[in-house]
Design a protein around this nucleic acid. Structure first.
Lengths: 358, 358
DNA sequence: TGTTAGCACTCAAGCTCGTCGAGTGCTAAA
DNA sequence: TTTAGCACTCGACGAGCTTGAGTGCTAACA
């Protein structure tokens, strides 16, 4: 009899309701859920005994697990997976929350990275989990201006501006013999030659070729070209933000100090964060990685929810939330979706302002 | 008899040795220290009974405390205070450590903030505690150059450079009608008028007065002047770095999750860090705040060791280490001192390179 | 045939109680 | 003044017990 239930992987409505009820409750309480609790709290019109039988089936199918024989059931990763894919009821953000997001994400300055930083801060505030965000990949952005500004004899400032409004500068030491007038000439040539190219199109050897153009031996020009390369490098190097790390202490699953330590340690590594946020799937709005689906050992009992933002349908960066697998998925998913739209809107506004071409 | 010992606050050599031994041991083990342990491990030529009597005296004088009747003694804040002021034996850094510091703190770029960031990182690596650092107060630094660079119609980049090699820029939206040639004129006037002043000498109303000079109604100039103000503001706004936060998990006093949470939470506040690092005492090389001497409730069982770095004997910033009161003071103090000297050296080198005047 | 009441069983949590040992204070002798 | 000795204290630890939430199975019922 049981084998029949197990063999057919199809879950009837009753099993689905029970599973949903269990996961909803477990997300709320973090305690193993017993059959009686479900019978009492949810109006399923079933006795605890019936629910008990169903729960046994659900366990055998792998959606639930039992910490020990005489405890209630807790969801397995597979159970959460079904829950997020099919069972959970979407919720709407409260007016308050929407207002908070709106307020936080108004762009005050021309800097894209500020927007992303704000997004991260607000995500952790709203969800109460730990949030992270990575600033856009800039390899495809276009150089709008390159300038060399004389500061004092022996010193010049190299500046690169992109169409996305990102500016980087680099103070370089140059020969005392280079006069301001000459630097302005160099500046103009660089500006003319580099404008319109994307960052990824420019590499150092190409820069070297400009030396010929300018007609001056490499030694004098070298620091300036290195400055340009450094600026480009900095623009291209995405920043990563992490917020709400101490939120995890509010969840009983991190009562164990070693677990908290592991969690915080792994998030301290920029490389790890970059990896977690390198969301390749272009088709999915909000991606969810549950427990063991995660790439790193230390967060195998966490869930990671990520979303990407894009320009012209090309993903340029992403952000996410990480917390215990017992995560308020409905809330997190709607927050992420909302903020994602907000970022996209603001980013396209910003780009529109800054691009004259497209 | 006991009262005699207590009345005279003078500690004889024997009491001092015993107190030093107890604190040394407690720093190492984090366990209450008993009389027998001291008699065995340290060659004081005294029996445990004698030491016991002395310990009772030391407790009555407030240098030691007893968690409960049948436990050993632990140092009180007052005990630590005496220890750091008079008892502890200075230690030298190992060659390895000196090399590590040297390597980490070589300046590669012209940016002062990088140096301070490195100092913080290296402090936490060497001491195994949590470290923090604040970038210099820049109010006294001198404006070396101000530039307005046309980027495209309707957009200009405002740049401010100081004698300390700090550069900030601000992309501003301007009227389409302002032509590049005019912007260059504005740039020259600004450069001429602002150079040589310190940041604190310049305020917005002064900037407004320049409008007259340039001879153009405020509406056109406003965004540019705001850009200058924003740059100055950003330069003046010190950055704060925090490293090695998860180090605290290695110390048994932070096994309690709530304590760890309180600690991490309080250090999450920029304001708190700024406060902790606002070291006013100009005479002291390395300042130590023990336990209850600290201003914030959450770190009353921590010790904070800070040091300042300066230019021309004027303190411009500071850095520090925070950890349990049971801190390896000798190690921390010598590390701080070493790094302090290193920073001072590098900073003066950097300033020397960048200042042409003084 | 599916549902439910009833019952025996399981097991972690929490309590008490006794043992152990590190440490103390006091006393008396050296 | 120092020290050996001894009675005493008290937390840590583990064994044994109780409690209660929860289960699986069986038999009766609709």
């Amino acid at each position: 009899m049981l084998t029949k239930g197990v063999q057919m992987m199809f879950l009837d409505d009753r099993k689905r309701s029970i599973l949903r009820a269990i996961i909803d409750d477990y997300i709320e309480t973090a305690e193993p859920i017993g059959s009686r609790t479900i019978a009492r709290k949810h109006e399923l019109g079933l006795s605890s005994a019936t629910i008990r039988n169903e729960m046994a089936d659900l366990e055998e199918m792998g959606f639930l697990a039992q910490p020990h024989t005489s405890a209630g059931r807790i969801p397995s990763d597979k159970g959460y997976r079904l829950y997020v894919d099919q069972l959970m009821m979407p919720i709407n953000l409260s007016d308050d929350e929407i207002e908070t997001i709106r307020e936080a994400m108004e762009i005050k300055i021309n800097e894209l990275s500020q927007l992303i930083r704000q997004a991260s801060v607000i995500m952790s505030r709203i969800t109460k989990y730990t949030s992270m965000a990575i600033t856009p990949q800039m390899r495809k952005s276009i150089i709008k201006a390159t300038q060399v500004v004389p500061i004092e004899p022996g010193k010049a400032l190299v500046i690169v501006v992109t169409n996305t409004g990102v500016v980087r500068n680099c103070l370089v030491n140059i020969s005392d013999k280079l006069l301001p007038d000459f630097l302005i000439k160099v500046s103009n040539i660089l500006n003319e030659k580099l404008s319109g190219f994307t960052l990824e199109q420019i590499n150092y050897s190409q820069l070297k070729e400009l030396e010929v153009e300018i007609g001056l031996s490499g030694e004098f020009l070298k620091p300036i070209l290195e400055g340009v390369a450094e600026c480009i490098n900095q623009i291209d190097n995405p920043e990563i933000y992490l917020d709400g790390t101490t939120n995890i202490f509010n969840y009983p699953e991190f009562r164990d100090v070693m677990k908290a330590k592991g969690f915080l340690n792994v998030l301290d590594e920029k490389e790890v964060l970059r990896d977690l946020l390198s969301n390749k799937n272009e088709n999915i709005e909000v991606d969810i990685k549950i427990g063991t689906e995660n790439p790193f050992e230390e967060i195998r009992d966490c869930s990671l929810v990520t979303a990407s933002y894009s320009v012209n349908n090309r993903i340029i960066g992403s952000f996410g939330v990480i917390g215990p697998t017992r995560m308020e998925y409905p809330k997190v998913v709607s927050s992420m979706n909302h903020i994602r739209k907000k970022i996209n809107y603001e980013i396209n506004k910003l780009m529109g302002k800054n691009i004259d071409g497209s």
